[in-house]
Design a protein around this nucleic acid. Structure first.
Length: 306
DNA sequence: GATATTTGACCAAC
DNA sequence: GTTGGTCAAATATC
């Protein structure tokens, strides 16, 4: 955790130095550093949540509507995770289906969990402004993975989404170790390898050098294909990796201004489309995993490597 | 043609 | 009977 905080500080320093640099710095590099900052914020937030057992919600009455976390309060960073452990049926909730082994997350980046999801439904929910989208693991058919998730925009905070993860991934769709690729310039690909063998809060997103609002923008780039092949040689096609950038979570920039102007379910739909079109080759790809309290990351080494 | 998304219909929990 | 969750055919995209 301390390493994470330190890393975040180093990233902030790097960002400020780049911004204040007299040497012209490509916007993509600044964006990349901004992404790193965002990831640190996410990681710290998620790590804090998993670290503190008091954060684990045992409430039997937790539902999408009645959730104590749906009161619109803000949280640090963009993500907030709560785990729902074997909720009991109350008879008054809307838990119609299995909700054991579920966890709820409030996040502005509902699709950056590094998993490949396929949307299988969308439903208007009573007394809610925004529809709920239903996703299941891409590997449900080939590996029988039962993980699903539900994404719904939060009325009180339209910039955020409530993501309910149900079930555990049983598919073999993860990295052998957490890795961070920084590749604003294909010639200067950086790889961060977080030593870990445990899949936990994971952040993975990719975007082309210009912006990621377009699908398959870099399709055919062998450099990126090689990067993708790093991810999982066992069973996962590179095209099945989720790709998502929540550019809206960042400060205004040329990149964010290029995001399509959508709202409500349109954004979710658009995100889902982009998300599932993961064969756009990444030039920035970041995974963060945590194995207990072990997180080895040397920011100095990292930022000097390019 | 393969794969993903959309969306109306259906099922089951309440 | 109502409503949330899932299915599957139609459609879209590459």
């Amino acid at each position: 955790m301390e390493d994470l905080v330190r890393g975040q500080e180093f990233a902030k320093q790097a960002h400020m130095q780049l911004q204040g640099s007299e040497i012209p710095v490509e916007n993509e590099i600044l964006d990349s550093v901004a992404k790193i900052l965002e990831c640190f914020a996410n990681a710290i937030s998620k790590f804090s949540s998993s670290e503190s057992s008091s954060e684990v919600c045992h409430s039997p009455a937790l539902t999408a509507v009645d959730s104590p976390f749906s009161d619109g309060r803000k949280s640090e960073g963009t993500g907030e995770i709560r785990t729902i452990i074997s909720p009991k049926k109350t008879g008054s909730s809307n838990k119609r289906r299995r909700t054991s082994d579920a966890r709820e997350e409030l996040t502005a980046t509902p699709f950056d969990d590094g998993r490949a999801w396929r949307k299988y439904g969308q439903k208007e929910i009573l007394n809610t402004k925004y529809p709920k989208s239903y996703f299941r693991c891409t590997h449900k058919t080939d590996q029988g993975c039962q993980a699903t998730k539900q994404v719904q925009r939060i009325e009180e905070e339209p910039a955020k989404y409530r993501v309910l993860y149900i079930g555990q991934h049983t598919c073999n769709n993860q990295l052998k170790g957490p890795q961070l690729f920084l590749d604003a310039n294909p010639r200067h690909t950086c790889l961060l390898n977080f030593e870990s063998n445990y899949y936990a809060p994971k952040v993975e997103f990719s975007f082309p050098a210009s912006i990621s609002s377009a699908k398959h923008e870099f399709k055919g780039d062998t450099e990126y294909a090689n990067i993708a092949s790093h991810k999982n040689k066992d069973s996962v096609k590179s095209s099945e990796f989720a790709v998502w950038n929540d550019l809206s979570a960042f400060n205004p920039s040329p990149a964010t201004s290029m995001m399509p102007s959508t709202s409500g379910s349109e954004l979710v739909d658009g995100i889902a489309g982009l998300y599932s079109s993961a064969d756009s080759n990444p030039n920035f790809d970041m995974d963060m995993m945590f194995d207990d309290d072990v997180l080895q990351f040397d920011p100095n080494e990292f930022f000097n490597s390019s």
